[in-house]
């Protein structure tokens, strides 16, 4: 009697567990398909693409890259942010200097979604900016801001520099490409 009850329970639990598992598995797979894809792809007149990411997709594509030799410079900016726009040329200059090296620059725009076609694309076109610009949808910003850095107060410009060994988050603007290079060299071996 006891044994059969035990068996019964085990079978029940197994069924329950496997069903449950299937549900989570299914949820995970459907998530991972949509979660790493951009929400939208915009194109400038120069033909360069601007991907619009939710935070989940942004995290997968840009924050969790772990190629051992590559260092990422992730700059948070917006066309409406004066100090951000002022420091962009220093980033572009350094990006050119490091073009043959294992450093990737990404410019994360926090522009208003309704302004992407009217402000962001014309801004990039007017200045002929072909660097890698992506847009981060700020939906539920409080849930993810600390995932970028716990110390982030919420102001831009801000820059994250990381590789598989080191990481620094700088909530500041840079006054020259040399100043930025100094910060970068503290992360690169």
């Amino acid at each position: 009697m006891r044994l059969s009850a035990f068996l019964y329970l085990t079978v029940l639990l197994t069924i329950f567990y496997s069903c449950n598992n299937k549900v989570t598995e299914h949820r995970q797979s459907s998530n991972s398909v949509s979660a790493s894809e951009p929400q939208k792809i915009l194109k400038t007149k120069m033909g360069t693409e601007v991907l619009v990411y939710s935070f989940d997709a942004f995290e997968k594509n840009l924050l969790q890259r772990k190629e051992p030799s590559v260092t990422y410079v992730i700059n948070f900016w917006a066309t409406w942010c004066g100090p951000c726009v002022a420091e962009l040329p220093y980033f572009f200059k350094l990006e050119e200097q490091y073009s043959g090296k294992d450093v990737r620059f990404v410019y994360v725009s926090l522009d208003f979604l309704k302004n992407l076609e009217t402000k962001l694309l014309p801004f990039l076109e007017k200045r002929n900016i072909r660097n890698k610009v992506v847009v981060l949808d700020q939906k539920d910003v409080n849930s993810w801001m600390s995932k970028i850095d716990k110390k982030w107060s919420g102001a831009i410009p801000a820059t994250l520099i990381y590789n598989s060994k080191r990481r620094v988050f700088l909530e500041q603007n840079f006054e020259s490409s040399e100043e930025l290079e100094k910060a970068l060299n503290e992360i690169i071996d």
Binding site: P83, V141, N142, M145, S146, S153, G154, A155, I156
Partner: peptide, 9 residues
């Protein structure tokens, strides 16, 4: 407590 996002003062 939440975090505000915006333009630096």
């Amino acid at each position: 407590v939440t975090k505000a996002f915006g333009c630096g003062i």
